[in-house]
Design a protein around this nucleic acid. Sequence first.
RNA 1: GCCCUUGUAGCUCAGUGGAUAGAGCAACAGUUUCCUAAACUGUGGGUCGGCAGUUCGAGUCUGCCCGAGGGCACCA
Length: 569
Amino acid sequence: MNSSANKHPRLFDKRTLMHDFFLPIIQNALLSANIITDKPIQIEQPADKKFGDFSTNIALLIAKERKKNPRELAQEIIRHIVFPPETIAKIDIAGAGFINFYLAPVFIMRSVGNVLRDGAAYGQGNTGQGKTALVEYVSANPTGPLTIGRGRGGVLGDCIANLMETQGYNVTREYYFNDAGKQMQILGESVRLRFLEYCGETVEFPTTHYQGDYIRDIAESIYKEEGNTLQSSDDVLLFKKRAESIIFASIRKTLERLAIRHDSFFNEHTLYTAEKTGVSANQRVIDALYRQAFIGEYDGATWFLTTKLGQEKDKVLIKSSGEPSYRLPDIAYHITKFERGFDTIVNVFGADHIDEYPDVLEALKILGYDTERIKIAINQFVTTTVDGQTIKMSTRKGNADLLDDLIDDVGADATRFFFIMRGKDSHLNFDVELAKRQSKENPVFYLQYAHARICSLLRLALQETGFDPQNSSEHELLQLLNSPAELQLGFALLDYPRMITTSIRLLEPQKMVEYLHDLAEVFHRFYQECPIIKAEPDIRNARLFLALATRQVLRNGFKILGVSAPESM
RNA sequence: GCCCUUGUAGCUCAGUGGAUAGAGCAACAGUUUCCUAAACUGUGGGUCGGCAGUUCGAGUCUGCCCGAGGGCACCA
């Protein structure tokens, strides 16, 4: 045991309660009851409070192999359970043979003191200590302003990165983009044609080109600066460059509004150019796959022989034009993630890219990379509802819903919150009217209100009583609390660290949203039922500590979600 | 046709093989001499898309069928 562990008594959040407290207790009981089994001991929180705080189904699991009645077995196990004083209040058997544990109120409230002690660090862990992670998200090419759909992936990725940082991961947030492909060529051409219109020419604008108004805006800005001097030029590159820098600036600005940040922008084009070795990253992929006999040449193109892996068709890596298809740089890009030494690699992208990653993974596997390190988070699409009418996101037509417009409409907090308040696999229905509403129907306001209410309470308490729980360490007062509402709140606070690890395991920040909503609800009930400032001093101070601990957890959670924590509303 | 995601209350959605399937909103009925009523309490509401299977136990796992979204390019 190291010295820091001695300085700080063990933190009894639910994760540690399950693994470090209940597990050994049950293991020892089985041992002394002479029950040997290879069945795993499962400890869970019953959905219904009346079945205790924790329960185990071990008696059910081993009943068959022991040919015994599960309830009798449970009885026998209970007889052998030993536990420290002031921890467990009651143990009983219910249902088919579940063993249910009820925690002693003192035990719960003592643990709440640890929340106050850890403060902003409460919930942090060390599973990522000393490890690096790359989280890639947004990665939109600079062909137009960000759409609402991209926003969902951006917030999802940002929250995943935030979550991982709480566990000690050194996270690099990366944006992968391409400014060299065919789409960018079309972008430059689109701007040039609109520019010519400004110069007074009548042009035919192809339907394959970008239709959005922003193309006209860019063309106009070029016209204002350059006049018609470029009219005779057919240099598309110039228009492309201008468009790219303007669009990229707008994308970054939009992301900034949502506090979505990146540490690294990876330009796909660097994979095309020769490195020190004189060979491009793309070429190295071809060479390496060739050595493994997964490259074929026919129809004038170079193919990844995925039919050898049981797929229906081979996949083009180099087109007959000599240009790589998107797949080749994708593979090369992922190799750089390994070469840069990341321990964990997280890719966040939309459902439209769902067919892309299996090929990349196959190629990486063939080349000997450990694809277990790669985690994929795919988010389903977004539809928006305005005035009860569902509007489907539409793509390159120029009538796609713009993320900026949505932020203008409902604000950054609601935008972020709504994007992650549903599971990523669920098709998100973004109700714009609901997001704008400043009432309890709007879940983001419900949560923020709980925080503001606590702030207000602490302000008033200080003013009326002179007591500031932030400047007091009499946390043992918490042990005076034992009403159902207080215990429920204290118990909920202990769940926070486990929710973080669950969210990371599932790459699902939505778990945090749900948890925080439940926490706010339990707090409001406590606030309703327990008078605080008017209570007698010790109880009053204890309740202020409980409120302060709640505010801490809300703040810590809001920080991960990227939602503001208002002091008053 | 093939692949991925998905189908749970009127609506939007939770639900790690476990106990009588939950929450929010909406509906209805209540709560304020008292710290923010932007809150709280209660009531009603379900063939978990359908059919089979796996097992002590299935909303959860498997197969088939039906519906929804997305993808199946020498676009990215």
